[in-house]
Structure formats: structure tokens, C-alpha cells
Amino acid sequence: MNEYKTKEQKLRFYKSKEWKYIRLEALKRDNYECQGCKRNGLVYTEHHDSGKHKRLDVDHIKEIYTHPELALELDNLETLCIKCHNKKHNRFMFRKKKNKWDDEKW
């Protein structure tokens, strides 16, 4: 696969044996710890047998749709918790709702 532009191509890639293998290698290398949290002096980790729902993602530092040649390169991967991964891609970032009442605070 040289291109990962369509949803089907991405899905096929992320289900491939090659991706599953390199993903596991990245998790092991990063000691199952979020590298984003680690850079901020925090530790977020999980045991790799922790259950059905994953809490850690393996992220492509240089995205596969712009750098398909790096899709399976270990040096282009890092472990991130779901929160850091979503923050990096500006997804699911909920903002506090502004109070619709302009009441005084007592």
C-alpha cells in the first residue's frame, strides 16, 4: 500500500498483520506509557492485558496520508493516551459551556 487516502484503505491498513505487529513493538518500546504525558512530567500507563477497551493509541508522528512510506517505521510511531491523541488531532475537545445567565455570584 502506498496511499492511505480513502477510509477503506486506512481500515485495511489498520487491520493488517504488519500494522498490528509494529503497533505492539511501539507499545513495548514505550513501556506502555503515553509519551505525551511523559513529556509533561506525568505518567499515564496501562497494563497491556487491561481489557476490551484500549486506553493507549500508537500515533504516526508524520501522518500516513502525507508520508505513506513511513507508515510502518517504528521511528515514526509513538504511544499516546486517548486524551493526548485526540488533543494532537484537535478531536473531541469539549469546551466548558458559558453560563447563559449573567447572574451575580453571591
Rank of each mutant, 00 (worst) to 15 (best):
M1G: 04
N2A: 08
N2I: 08
Y4Q: 03
K5R: 10
T6A: 03
T6Q: 06
K7P: 12
K7G: 07
K10M: 10
L11T: 14
R12V: 02
F13H: 08
F13I: 02
F13W: 02
Y14I: 06
Y14F: 15
Y14A: 02
K15N: 15
S16H: 06
K17Q: 10
K17H: 07
K20F: 00
K20Y: 04
K20E: 05
Y21G: 01
L24N: 10
L24W: 01
E25S: 00
E25H: 07
E25C: 14
L27D: 05
K28W: 04
K28P: 01
K28A: 02
K28I: 12
D30P: 03
D30V: 04
D30F: 05
N31D: 09
N31C: 11
E33D: 06
C34Y: 04
Q35V: 02
Q35D: 06
G36S: 06
C37E: 04
R39N: 10
R39V: 08
G41L: 01
L42K: 15
L42R: 15
L42Y: 12
Y44V: 11
T45C: 05
T45Y: 14
E46G: 03
H48V: 08
D49R: 11
S50E: 08
K52A: 07
K52S: 07
H53Y: 14
K54G: 08
K54Y: 11
R55D: 06
R55W: 03
R55V: 11
L56W: 09
D57T: 09
D57N: 11
V58H: 08
V58N: 11
V58L: 10
D59C: 09
H60V: 05
H60M: 01
H60G: 07
I61C: 00
I61R: 05
K62R: 15
E63K: 15
Y65T: 11
T66R: 15
H67N: 15
P68T: 11
P68M: 12
E69A: 10
A71D: 04
L72N: 01
L72W: 01
E73T: 10
L74T: 01
D75I: 03
N76E: 03
N76P: 10
N76K: 00
N76I: 03
E78F: 00
E78I: 07
E78V: 06
T79E: 06
T79R: 02
L80D: 06
L80S: 00
C81G: 09
K83E: 14
K83F: 09
C84G: 04
H85C: 04
H85L: 00
K87S: 07
K87Y: 08
K88I: 07
H89W: 10
R91G: 00
M93C: 08
F94N: 12
F94K: 09
R95N: 13
R95K: 14
R95T: 15
K96W: 04
K96C: 07
K97L: 12
K97A: 13
K98N: 12
N99G: 11
K100Y: 12
K100S: 14
D102V: 07
D103W: 14
D103F: 15
E104I: 02
K105Y: 12
W106S: 13
